[in-house]
Structure formats: C-alpha cells, structure tokens
Amino acid sequence: MSDTFVSLTDLTLSYGQTVAVPNLNLDIVEGELIALLGPSGCGKTTTMRAIAGLLTPASGRIMIDGTDVTRTPANKRGIGLVFQSYALFPHLSAFENVAFGLRLQKLSDAQVRAKTEAGMATVGLTGFETRKPAEMSGGQQQRLALARSLVMQPKVLLLDEPLSNLDARLRLEMRNELQRVQKDTGITMVFVTHDQSEALALADRIVLMKDGKIEQLGKPADLYAKPATAFAAEFMGFENIFRVDGTDLVSDTGRLSMGFAAQANMLAWRPSGVSVGAGPHKGRVLASSFAGGHREYVLESPIGQIKADAPIETPEVTLGQEVAFDLPRETARHLVA
C-alpha cells in the first residue's frame, strides 16, 4: 500500500525457546491510530516492544517509513514509547524529564527550552516545570510522559495500556487528549490494550490478537457488530455464544430450539439482543442487578446461563421467578468456531 508507514513482515518473536508471536504480518497506515487488543499473553505487548526495538525478532522484518529497522537499536529508531508505568525519572524535575531526549541531541539551551515549554503546553502542564514526578497526580504524570515522547517528534508513538491506570473520569479526559494530539500532530499511533471499550473509542482500526496471531483486523464498528469467531465475539461483549445443530442450539447441558436454521456453526447474542418478557422460552432468574438505563439478568435455561439486559421500562422480574425470553434471529451473530 502506498501509505503504509509501518510494516511487520513474517515477524517471529520469541523469549528464549518459547515463541510468543509466530509469523506476524501487519501494515499500519500513516497517521492512523491503531489498537493492538487482546487478553494478557496474546502477544500485543511483545509486538509493541519489537516495534520499539526493545526486543530483537527471531526472524522477519520491521519497516518504518520505508527504512528497514529490524536491526536498528532502540535509541536510533525515532519512535516514542509511553510506558504503562510512565517510567518518569524520579530524580529530575518535570521540565528536565521532558527535555531529557532533547538534551541528548546537542541542541542549544535556548532550543531545548523552547521545545520543552511548547511540549508541556501541548499537554496542559505549563507551570509544572519545577515539580518532581512524585509531586504530581496520576493523570499529570501520564501527560508528562506523553509530552516527553512527543517533543522528540517521533515517527511512530507507541503507548502501553495508556488508560488502564486511570479512574473513570480521567480515562475520559485522557482519551480526548490522545485523540486531540493525534489530530493535531498526525503522528502514527499504536496502542496496546486489553480493554475493548478503550479500543473501540480511540482506534481507527483494531487488531484483535490471540496466542500471538491476528484473530481479526478491522474498523471498530466492524469488529463490534461483526466479530468473525467465537473468541472475537466474546471479547467484544457477546456473552451468549452457543453451538448450532440444525435448528437447535446445543451445549453440554442441553438443547434449545431456535425456530430458524443457521448457516454458521455458532451463534452469538449480546445481552442487549436477548428479549426479556416475551418469547417462546422460559427461564428462571438467577441474578438481577440494576444498571441505570437497563437491568442485567442472568437467566437459567436448558443450554446454560443466558445473560440478558432488559430496558428499564419493562416490568422487573424478581429472583427465582420464571420469565419468558427469546433469542431472536434478527440480533443473532453468525460465527465460525
């Protein structure tokens, strides 16, 4: 592709004898915000470290901006990395933290000062110059770590779990911050996360990984509505996934007749896709919790537990009671195993 900025070709990454990522192929477009999403151990952090140069590939090739950087050491790749723990230098002030990389470049004192001040302003930390990282809040520390990488004007910015250490409100702020920075600077960003809602909110494209391989790659809307496999579906929030046999759903505990035939060998429903209160099936309520705009039920059924969300307007069903429900064809997602 013409505007491929980072490409990983046949990349195999291993720790000692264990192969963490076998034969990965991925092209990242210039200026995009791409997420590596997956559970722990799926290889997303390993891949990120390989792009950064902290891990030497066993085989394969990494290209950044047309240059083969596979053998280039980490301090010469022109990438930026915001660590999950921020990795700020505790013995330096905020200003010196941000200026650290610039000072290594033999710029004049005035140039360093100008760039550093500009960098801190970009993340809204003007006035914090003399503070030590330990004297700053979590959100401020992260913005500082971000500024430290951004002033280097990296070709690619890598972020390791950027939002996982933050509380809900900060998370929202930081999300907006990252999007704004990306729009303003146009830097290609790759971030690693295990949280699907983070990936959905931020990314232009999502790379869902499992066991070192790419399970599915696509735009957030596509991944959300049309996961291809059971793993992808489960990761993207489809809680009710069952095998299909003819017109029945089957599990280890029993069968449930659906009333329609499916092409795929698995079907999945989001909790919001299950209709509660009316339908051909009956289930006993095992659990019920109030979630603001809807109620979350766990229903007992012949094929196992069904997680269903009912809008707040539907009459509440109490624990132990039986309620009718349906797994409609319209909201079913067809999957391959």
């Binding site: 902290l54 790749r77 930026g80 660590f83 290594l104 990488s149």
Partner: peptide
C-alpha cells in the same frame, strides 16, 4: 528501581552507558 526507566532513556536516545550514568546512578 524499575528497569523500564532505563528503557525509556534508551528510546529517548541514550546509549546503554548513558542510560546507566544519567538514570540508574542518580537513583
């Protein structure tokens, strides 16, 4: 001392030795 501080220093452009003297030693 977490080792990711040295990694951060290297990514910002230090050689291994510089990372040791500028980041590890002071701490």
């Amino acid at each position: 001392l977490r080792s990711d501080m040295e990694e951060a220093a290297v990514i910002l452009g230090c050689t291994r030795f510089q990372a040791f003297t500028k980041v590890v030693l002071p701490n």
